[in-house]
Computed example of a mutant assay.
Amino acid sequence: MKTIAVLAAMLLGALVQAQTGTSGNISATVPNVSGTEGSVVFGLYSAETFMKAEPEFAVSADIIDGKAVAHFEDVPHGTYAILVMHDKNDNKKMDFDTNGMPLENYGSSGNGMSYGPPVWEDSKFDFDGTPKQLEIRF
C-alpha cells in the first residue's frame, strides 16, 4: 500500500510539473542600438497578429550602453516572432520617409537582413515554456 501511495504522489508531481511548463519567460536583447534617443519597442507576435495587429505582448526598453533588453513573462507555449523598433521619438509607431523608407531601425527574431518588411517564416520560433533568450540585431 505504501508503494502505491509513493507511485501516486510521483505521478501527481509529474502532472503538476508538466502543466506548469506550459508558460514561461522570453528575453530579447538588441546589442547594436545606435544613439541614445527614445527607446526600443519589442512586440511578441503570433502568426495571426504578425504585421497585422497589436502584439500579444509588448515591452518598451531603455537604451543603456548601446543595448536594449526586454522580458516577456508568463508567455504560453506556441510559435511566435518578435519585432523590434528603435522608436527614436517615442511616438510608438514606425516613422517613414516620403519615399516609404523607414526612418527608424528595426529587426526581427529571425535576424534576416533583407530589404523590405520582416517575414513570418524567417522570424518565427517555437517556444515550449522553458526560459528562452534571443539576440536580435538591427
Rank of each mutant, 00 (worst) to 15 (best):
T3H: 09
I4M: 09
I4Q: 11
A5M: 14
V6Q: 07
L7D: 12
L7T: 11
A9Q: 03
M10P: 11
M10S: 14
A14H: 12
L15G: 14
V16W: 15
Q17Y: 15
Q17W: 15
A18K: 10
A18P: 06
A18M: 12
A18E: 14
T20G: 13
G21M: 15
G21C: 15
G21E: 15
G21I: 12
S23Q: 15
I26Q: 15
A28H: 03
A28E: 03
T29H: 02
N32P: 15
N32Y: 11
V33L: 03
E37W: 01
S39G: 04
S46V: 08
E48D: 14
M51Q: 14
A53G: 10
P55M: 04
E56M: 14
E56H: 13
E56V: 10
E56T: 11
F57M: 15
S60Q: 08
S60V: 11
A61G: 00
D62I: 02
D62A: 15
D62Y: 02
I63E: 08
I64D: 10
D65Y: 01
D65L: 02
G66D: 04
A68Y: 03
A68Q: 04
A68T: 04
A70W: 10
H71T: 12
F72L: 04
E73Y: 10
E73D: 12
E73N: 11
D74E: 13
H77E: 14
G78Q: 07
T79C: 07
Y80W: 06
I82N: 04
H86T: 01
H86F: 00
D87Y: 01
D87Q: 03
K88A: 00
N89Y: 00
N89G: 01
N89R: 01
N89W: 01
D90I: 03
D90V: 02
N91F: 02
N91M: 03
K92H: 11
M94P: 01
D95E: 07
D95A: 01
T98P: 00
N99Y: 03
G100M: 05
G100I: 02
M101A: 08
P102Y: 02
P102V: 02
L103Y: 02
L103E: 11
E104F: 01
N105Q: 10
Y106A: 01
Y106Q: 00
G107L: 04
G107E: 03
S108K: 06
S109N: 05
S109D: 07
S109A: 07
S109G: 09
S109Y: 02
N111S: 03
N111Q: 03
G112V: 08
G112F: 14
M113S: 09
M113F: 11
S114Q: 12
S114C: 08
S114K: 14
S114D: 12
S114I: 08
Y115H: 04
G116F: 08
P117N: 12
P118C: 08
V119S: 10
V119G: 05
W120F: 10
E121A: 14
D122Q: 10
S123G: 09
D126I: 04
D126F: 04
F127Y: 13
D128Y: 06
D128L: 05
G129E: 11
T130P: 09
P131Y: 11
K132T: 12
Q133H: 13
L134A: 05
E135A: 03
F138A: 14
F138L: 12
